[in-house]
């Protein structure tokens, strides 16, 4: 379980990215984090694994207060948190297998990772994950030889290779086409359900968020302005998060496009 309490972040430039953000994520819950650009979504998930230093507040994962950790203890905490990135952030010139195995870096000593001598369990877990994301044929290819959707699957495999207790996902579909976006969201959802893994997915696409998450948190100028079920995103709520816009028009397009399909059918389809 993840618990944020009065988390705030003010950058050195004086910009307040987050103020007094508090919420809890129980095991197995997939949370969609929505909000306009610059609302602090990226900062929020980067504060959790301390790629960005929070200014105030506590972040509790299990029994550990992540906000206070330093050095070795921080690295041990980070290996419990998997992260998936917007532009995939794979190491382009390493192979798919090396990228997936880099999920184990927090567990193995530097000399082992330098010689690429991972334990048989690590290797078989990596192969199983590649199988699961449909890339078992490609384990020996260089990451820059893959398409966008394939790269994001490697990104997912790398995060799961960590055997994480929490998944942080930063705009996973921003660089992908609509179909691939759905496949990727479905894959993340399935992985979380199988492992009872909580996840925070930072996402621009409100429709995708509604379809693939259990709960929505709306962020506006660093403050939580909505926290509730995906069905609760009424026009008033969307206006509170994003400002004035003709929300019905957006829904209208979506309704004609998606009317015959329910989310349940979509999930059953697999990938």
């Amino acid at each position: 379980m993840l618990k944020l309490d009065k988390l705030s972040k003010t950058y050195a430039t004086g910009d307040t990215a987050l103020s007094q953000v508090s919420f809890e994520v129980p095991a197995g819950q997939v949370v969609g984090l929505i909000g306009p650009s610059g609302a602090g979504k990226s900062t929020l998930i980067r504060c959790i694994n301390r790629l960005v230093e929070p200014t105030e507040g506590t972040i509790t994962l299990g029994d550990t207060d992540l906000a206070r950790l330093q050095g070795r203890a921080l690295r041990r905490a980070r290996r419990r948190i998997g992260m998936i990135f917007q532009e995939y952030a794979l190491v382009e010139r390493l192979t798919v297998m090396e990228n997936v195995l880099s999920g184990r870096l927090g567990y193995v000593p530097a000399w082992r990772s330098f010689l690429r001598r991972y334990s048989p369990e690590d290797v078989s877990r990596a192969l199983a994950l590649l199988e699961q994301v449909g890339l078992s044929q490609h384990f020996n290819k260089r990451a820059d030889a893959l398409s966008g959707g394939q790269r994001q699957r490697v990104g997912i495999a790398r995060a799961l290779e960590q055997d994480p207790e929490l998944l942080l996902v930063d705009e996973p579909t921003a660089s992908l086409d609509p179909k691939t976006s759905r496949q990727i969201m479905r894959l993340i959802g399935t992985a979380c359900r199988e492992r009872n893994l909580p996840a925070i997915i930072n996402i621009h696409d409100v429709m995708l968020a509604q379809q693939f998450t259990d709960r929505i948190i709306g962020l506006q100028a660093g403050k939580v302005v909505y926290d509730g079920p995906p069905t609760g995103l009424t026009d008033a709520v969307l206006t509170r998060i994003y400002g004035d816009e003709d929300w019905n028009q957006m829904r209208g397009e979506e309704a004609t496009d998606e009317a015959p399909r329910t989310p349940e059918v979509d999930l059953a389809e697999g990938i």
Binding site: N49, L51, R75, R76, A77, R78, R79, R80, I81, M83, F85, E87, A89, L90, V91, E92, L94, E98, S102, G103, R104, L105, G106, Y107, A110, S113, F114, G155, R158, Q162
Partner: peptide, 19 residues
Amino acid sequence: NQVEAVRATGASGAQVIDY
């Protein structure tokens, strides 16, 4: 971004340089 991703796995400084 690649450095950030490797750091996020809990890698040490030497491992970040290596990977």
